[in-house]
Amino acid sequence: MRSENTIRVIALHVGVLAALFLVQFVLPDYHHLALTRVMLLAIYAMGYNMLFGYTGLLSLGHAMFFAAGLYGAGMTAYYTDLGVPLAFVIGIICGAALSLVIGVIALRTTGVAFMIVTMMFGQVAYLTITYFTDYTRGEEGLTMPTSARSFDLLGLHVDLTNAVQRYNLALGLLALTLLVIFVVVRGPIGRVLIAIRENETRTLMLGFDTFRMKLGALVLSGTISAMAGAAYGLMFAYVGATFATIQYSIEALLFTLLGGAGTILGPLLGSILMFYIIDITSEYTQAYLLVTGVALVVLVLFFPKGILGTIRERWLSWLP
C-alpha cells in the first residue's frame, strides 16, 4: 500500500515537471515568458509553504528573504565582476544567513506574535534597503549590466536574455526545489515538523528539540525563498526595494493558501492561478488587487485547505 502510494506520488511529480518541460514547445510567447516568472515565484511560495504549510508558522515577512537573495545576487552582479553563478550563490548565502538570524530571534514567539514579529522584521529589511539608497537606488532599483546577462559554467555558455534558456533554468531550479522539499517532507524530519504543526507541546514531550527543528525549517524556507529572489533578479535583470514590501510577503501566503498549504504542489498551482487571475482581471478593472482581497477572504472562509488540500481531503488521500 505504502510503496504503491510512493510510486504514484513520484509519478505525479515527475509528470508535472515533464508537463512543464513539454509545454514550452507549444506555449505562445507571452505565456512562455509568464510561466518563467511564475515558476520562480512558485519556488518562493514553496519555500514559504515549508514553514507555513508543514511547520504551521505563519510568517508575514517572507519578502525579506526573497529580497535578501535578490539584493545579495543583484548587488554582487552589479558592483563586482565575480560573475553570475557566484552572485547567485552569494544571494542564497545571504538568505540563509538572514533566516538563521531571524529564526533564532523570532522563533521564541509563536502564533500571532510570530506573525507580527516577522512582519516587523520584514519592514526593517525594507527600510534598510531604502536607507542605503546611495548603493541600492532604493525604490528605483538597479538594472543589471550587460556583463551580468550571460555566463559560462562548466563549458556551457548561458545567455540570460534568451527566453528558452531562462525557462529551462527556472524549470531546473523548480525541479531542484521540488526534490529537496519532497525528500525533507516525506522523510522523518517532515513527520516531526507536521507533528509540531499539530501539537508542539506533545512533540516536545516526546523528546524532540522542537526549537531546532523549527529553526531548521525556517532556514530551509528562507533559503529557498532567497534562491527564488536571486534567480528572479538575475534572470529579469532588475532588483528594487518594492520586492521587499509587505505586499510580496502576502503574495507568498496567498499563493500557498490558494493552492493548498501543506501540499507539495499547492504553491505552484496557486502561483499559476493567481498570476492569470490578476493578468486577466487587470484587463477589465483597475482595481485588480480587489481580486487578491476577495480571494483571501473566500479562501479562508470556504476553502481553508486550498485547492489541493481540498482534493486531498475529499478524493486523493495519498496526495503529498
Binding site: 505562445p28 510567447d29 507571452y30 505565456h31 512562455h32 515568458l33 509568464a34 516568472r37 532599483g141 529579469f236 532588475y238 528594487g240 518594492t242 520586492f243 493578468d279
Partner: peptide
C-alpha cells in the same frame, strides 16, 4: 509597480 511594469512590457511584446 516595477515587477508588474516589466511583465506588462513582456505582455505588449509577446501577446
Amino acid at each position: 509597480d516595477p515587477k508588474r511594469g516589466a511583465e506588462v512590457v513582456e505582455k505588449f511584446a509577446t501577446q
